[in-house]
Design a protein around this nucleic acid. Structure first.
Lengths: 141, 141
DNA sequence: AGTTATCATCGGCATATGGCGATGAATGTT
DNA sequence: AACATTCATCGCCATATGCCGATGATAACT
């Protein structure tokens, strides 16, 4: 479930230099469960059990997905007591999801990947400063 | 090699609504070969043979990857004579890749996914209008 | 100490993925 | 007409992926 970074030659060995990092990043987002986790974490950090219940997946499965997201650097794990809290680690994720959403919209698909508060201004006639992309920790410790 | 759209219940059936489209999109980018193809096509459209040589992969493999990218709506196929030209179909892809690049940079990885002419302005003090993200067809028919 | 809760990790299993060569259709060339 | 080229598709195979239950470690609670 992991996809190691150290698998050297990605395909045949002489591909143009794409590097494993972007592949890992996109791979981590190329799964319904992981994408759902990201969306849930957008609302605030969660414990593994919480996600387990919200997703309807086995605990081991959720842990696996979280490990994947963590290896991609998208989430952070904060152990607290006997539970572990997971939270989004990269605010830069929202522009990415917004861009994906826009691409899909342009392709004719209606999708919602970003919560409203993380979407960029519709057009921004210029003047308004930085918006969206704010990390908000709704404490639960 | 395709990943069908009609596989209904993605994981267990009761996941929050993420929809198959974004998964398909990210999946299409989560492969070194396909990412390489995208980069090559950024420079202009290619035939399958061209990509086959440039990637060092079997023709059937390349065709498969192109089918995947096409099913994700990222590339278009223009049959011409006995060869087929493939070109990028979505200019909106560049903001996506730029966002991914930024995220990875923020994560500490140095990666280059967009050609310079497709990158957004470094900061854009405001004033300069729309830039980058232009589709350029360097004809070869 | 004993019990309960939470979670990471492991092994097993069914399926998906990505690689290849072979085949056949379509088209251009001789 | 015969041949060559290009490409989509198919079957095969090795590996990766995602799911689960079981196990064991850690920490809290009685």
């Amino acid at each position: 479930m992991a996809m190691n970074v150290d698998d050297a030659q990605p395909v045949s060995g002489r591909l143009p230099g794409v590097g494993p990092a972007p592949v890992l990043l996109f791979h981590s987002l190329a799964d319904p469960a992981r994408l759902a986790i990201v969306q849930l974490l957008a609302d605030g950090e969660r414990r593994v059990v919480d996600l387990t219940k919200e997703l309807g997946l086995a605990q081991s499965t959720v842990s696996g997905h979280l490990a994947c997201l963590r290896s991609a650097g998208l989430v952070d794990a904060h152990p607290h007591g006997r539970s572990t809290f997971y939270a989004l680690a990269r605010p830069e994720l929202w522009p990415l999801l917004a861009a994906a959403e826009e691409l899909l919209t342009a392709s004719g698909t209606t999708t919602t990947l970003c919560p409203e508060h993380h979407r960029p201004e519709p057009v921004a006639v210029c003047g308004a400063a930085v918006r969206g992309c704010t990390m908000h920790h709704s404490g639960r410790h």
